[in-house]
Design a protein around this nucleic acid. Structure first.
Lengths: 336, 336
DNA sequence: AACCCCTATGAAAACGTTTACGTTTCGCGC
DNA sequence: GCGCGAAACGTAAACGTTTTCATAGGGGTT
């Protein structure tokens, strides 16, 4: 239509040069008029690039998931990459199938899955594809890893409690298999030891449910001497604690301070508003995506970059005796 | 490697027949041993099928988004389809770019966007691609539409209030531009009229924020005669109402019943627990996906199917004077 | 035994790009 | 005016499948 060969069209549209500014202009105009769109399959057949990255995510619901995708999508779009997601896998087999199905359709992989232990990775990861593991703890060094700084967050919370005079701080743990929980527990220990309180470790097991937090708080009330703070491994358990303490007539934070982890939306609406640790989840996704893009661009040399941590942030509200207002707020929250 | 031509490999792996069971077996074994994966770009170059569907979603956060994707992903996987998402678009231009970028990479489109009005659709929708519009109100009949049954949900809530003796029911509206809100308002009107209460329409404008709900409730308290129920167009405003009413010492639901819409997770934790209308969001995504798959399979004839509504569900808790327990629960909720 | 049909298989074209390589054209210096 | 080099452009191969068409072989029917 523009009286040129397909080669010139390719050159003009891709801006590779070797074509007059005038003809390039003409070709572009014709292409726009014809609503011509290059056939991406043909292109990636020869280019061996799909400009797509695959995200293998666990079957999780709620804010965490959407924030993560949001961060990933943002970073991907900024680099002109597309996003192929696969989000709900009940078991490892399903996840493996999804992973295989992405084989060849993507330039790189973002993997976050509870089923993804070392053997799973070794087994199912398409070898030539660059990949970034999100929040997965594997000894191998074949892939980049982006983690949540659970330990640092936990340390910050405990440190804050100590700074405000608390000495007998109970930690309510979560499911043992969970890596985040282990790291949070480690942070709790480290902070105690850093303050010369290593002997005061008090750990109660929970299972992440509100109910287990409720029971844990009841157990705390039976302790002698009575602890002066509870740090739960997640917000739901912390909220369970608040219920139990309220029921027992214990003043929070006067008698016992309470802290959680995650900053779920509800945290600021319970009474008293819950102090907690917020994880910058979108940042986690963005970082992972950027790291992956680097790996793809750098090509074969593939220097595995050092592990990166997504930062956390201490959110001080009334439940830990910090400086936040103790009254329930009715105005919209600026940090919503 | 199996001493056969590429043609036979293709036939064997795709199960098209025309090849002995024995050779098929042999080819499959060799393929598995070699970890051979067909090059999807080459395949879709000739097949003109990508086995991928694109989802254009608004820049929304939280549970709605993740539930929607979850439903879509589930239905897509069940059909062996991949999911290309693009989720965060600040303005219409960004959304249009994302839409164009998907051109040719997908067999069909799922579109949900606040920017997607009629002209946007007309302008940017790749014509040959089947598409399903989610919760978008367009007069044209070129695409299938899947909607939320906002109207039915609102009717159910109002009917429930009427059934429990409420007569002066205030509706707190949301942003005017929002289609869901208009439909919820329509449902409110219809239910009143169906009960011979058409003259009792009381509408206060809000903006979906907790604060606007707070102010609306204060306005309600100034009315004479005082209304006996408030139905807010979303849960956040309803929660704002609860704050204002609690502050004014008004008994809920004794003096004034309160209902919301959306069933956000927080709804069951406020005091008293909030009655609301739940939207089956995952179902919305699933339905849209299935509809799209049908359109793709049916090929060119493309009978535009009738619009479909995702069902809603009335969730009765204490705030509307229903039968739910009025005490705050500490046990984990089975409907979480 | 000749014929025919049917099935299994191979050869080759086609899909729409990119890119290496040739060819033309143009400008410029002698 | 001639030659030469560089830039612009065209030709054709290549990417890895699917699919059409051709071919060979085997078994059944006459």
């Amino acid at each position: 239509m523009a009286n040129v060969s397909v080669a010139s069209v390719s050159r003009a549209l891709n801006g590779h040069g070797g074509v007059t500014a005038e003809t390039q202009q003409r070709i572009r105009e014709v292409a726009a008029r014809l609503r011509y769109v290059p056939h991406s399959a043909a292109r990636s057949l020869i280019t061996r690039r799909t400009h797509t990255i695959g995200a293998l995510l666990p079957d999780l619901h709620g804010a965490f998931f959407s924030e993560l995708i949001r961060g990933i999508d943002l970073a991907a779009r900024a680099r002109g990459l597309h996003l192929l997601v696969s989000s709900s896998h009940g078991d490892a087999e399903e996840a493996a199938t999804a992973l295989r199905a992405m084989q060849g359709r993507v330039d790189g992989l973002l993997v976050m899955s509870p089923h993804a232990d070392e053997s799973f990775i070794e087994e199912n990861m398409p070898t030539p594809t660059p990949a970034v593991l999100i929040n997965i703890h594997v000894p191998g060094h074949r892939h980049a890893v982006v983690d949540i700084d659970d330990r640092g967050g936990a340390r910050a919370m405990v440190q804050h409690l100590v700074d405000h005079g608390r000495r007998r701080i109970v930690f309510i743990a979560g499911p043992e298999a969970n890596n985040d929980v282990r790291e949070r527990e480690n942070g709790y220990r480290e902070a105690l030891e850093a303050n010369g309180l290593g002997a005061n470790q008090l750990i109660i097991n929970g299972d992440f449910s509100e109910e287990s937090g409720f029971r844990a708080a009841q157990a705390v009330l039976g302790m002698n001497p009575r602890p002066d703070a509870i740090f739960a491994a997640n917000d739901m358990m912390a909220i369970g604690c608040l219920s139990a303490l309220a029921e027992a007539g214990v003043n929070v934070p006067g008698d016992i301070a309470v802290g959680g982890f995650d900053d779920i939306p509800m945290a600021r609406y319970v009474s008293p508003p819950l102090s907690t640790v917020r994880v910058r989840i979108a940042e986690l996704g963005e970082t992972a995506m950027e790291r992956l893009a680097q790996m793809i661009e750098s090509g074969e040399d593939m220097v595995v970059p050092p592990r990166h941590m997504a930062s956390t942030e201490l959110v001080v509200r009334a439940s830990c005796g910090g400086t936040a207002p103790s009254r329930r707020r009715h105005a919209p929250n600026s940090d919503a």
